[in-house]
């Protein structure tokens, strides 16, 4: 196998024209996803993480959207690909699951029919054989009584079961890459744990890579290999999960970690919350977009800082390494 990442996103920009001016949803995002790798894309609402995912899948169809940059999947450029060519990749080589399993299944078709539809769109397979495959897939994602579930309608299943069905659909053609947009946010914690375990298992069983978009650092800690932290449309920190969690480099990441109350041990009297709110994407501050909320901001921050730092673990912050070392919060007790 040639050395080449499965997915290579370069300088991806997604802008929307709106009445309030240009909304800069994604601003020059670049990252790679290797084979059999789980990348966590973390950020709060408006950070551009979901738009990045939709752009990869070619699902941004607003007439007011302006996209630029390059998205190469298995060496093929996806940006600007005609619909017909795109449809040979979507659903077959790249699967996607969405946040709300309650609304992401068509209410008037059975679960089985919706999986069969995907299978038959991409493979030369008969109706009967496709149905059998669908039942196998439903079984593989851990839904009990798969044969009868195949004949049921979405509203007849619980949220957790629906999300499993969506995953079965996304995995039906054994895609090399799975895009998961907040796959557990709409679910209860006990069900969330089951779905996260399932996504981890898919990587082993199908050998797929995964991009997991989430706002929940806990979800990333459990599943991802690499982490990209996004803020206001840019990646502000990227690196292997261990590095990002043990020695976060960007002040925004510090703030994020500090905002989450601890699960055990002593409780802080106050959480070290990040002051203020994320900027409006139509009126971004000059320079580093985190500057207005950053306790370490200074004049140099009026220049947009590039992603820099040690190999493999970079952040978009002008603070020198020594300062980062000194200021970064440490996690205790973890390996």
């Amino acid at each position: 196998m040639r050395f080449e990442p499965l997915l290579e996103v370069k300088d991806l920009t997604v802008h929307f024209r709106s009445e309030e001016g240009l909304v800069e949803a994604v601003r020059g995002v670049s990252f790679n996803v290797g084979r059999n790798e789980i990348l966590g894309l973390v950020g709060e609402s408006g950070s551009g993480k979901s738009q990045t995912l939709l752009a990869i899948m070619g699902l941004i169809d607003s007439p007011n959207a302006v996209l630029s940059g390059s998205i190469r999947f298995e060496g093929q450029e996806l940006m600007g690909l005609p619909r017909r060519a795109l449809d040979r990749i979507r659903g077959k080589k790249i699967g996607m699951i969405f946040q709300d399993p309650m609304t992401s299944l068509t209410p008037v078709h059975t679960i089985g029919a919706q999986i069969v539809e995907t299978l038959r769109a991409h493979e030369q397979i008969g109706r009967k054989a496709a149905k059998d495959r669908a039942v196998e897939l439903i079984d593989a994602v851990g839904i009990p009584a798969p044969r009868s579930v195949a004949d049921r309608y979405p509203h007849q299943l619980s949220g957790g079961m629906r999300q499993r069905a969506v995953i079965a659909m996304a995995m039906s053609c054994n895609p090399a890459l799975l895009l998961a947009d907040e796959p557990t946010t709409a679910l209860d914690v006990t069900v969330q744990a089951q779905i996260l375990d399932l996504i981890g298992k898919l990587r082993e069983d199908f050998g797929s890579s995964v991009i997991l978009v989430t706002h929940d650092l806990g979800v990333v800690a459990e599943t991802a290999d690499k982490v990209n932290v996004m803020y206001a449309g840019r990646i502000v920190e990227e690196g292997p999960k261990e590095a990002v969690f043990l020695q976060p480099r960007h002040p925004y990441s510090w703030g994020l970690f500090g905002s989450i109350p601890p699960f055990d041990g002593p409780r802080p009297a106050r959480l070290s919350a990040i002051p203020g709110a994320p900027p409006k994407l139509s009126a971004l501050p000059k320079g580093c977009s985190f500057r207005p909320r950053c306790p370490h901001a200074h004049d140099a921050c009026l220049q947009e800082p590039p992603l820099a730092g040690p190999v493999g673990h970079r952040s978009a912050c002008v603070l020198p390494d020594a300062a980062i070392e000194e200021l970064a919060p440490r996690q205790e007790g973890a390996a």
Binding site: R90, G91, D100, L105, T106, E117, T118, A121, V166, M169
Partner: peptide, 12 residues
Amino acid sequence: DFIRMARAKGIG
């Protein structure tokens, strides 16, 4: 959402 999902399935 399910329309987006349908498009993501790669059907015409």
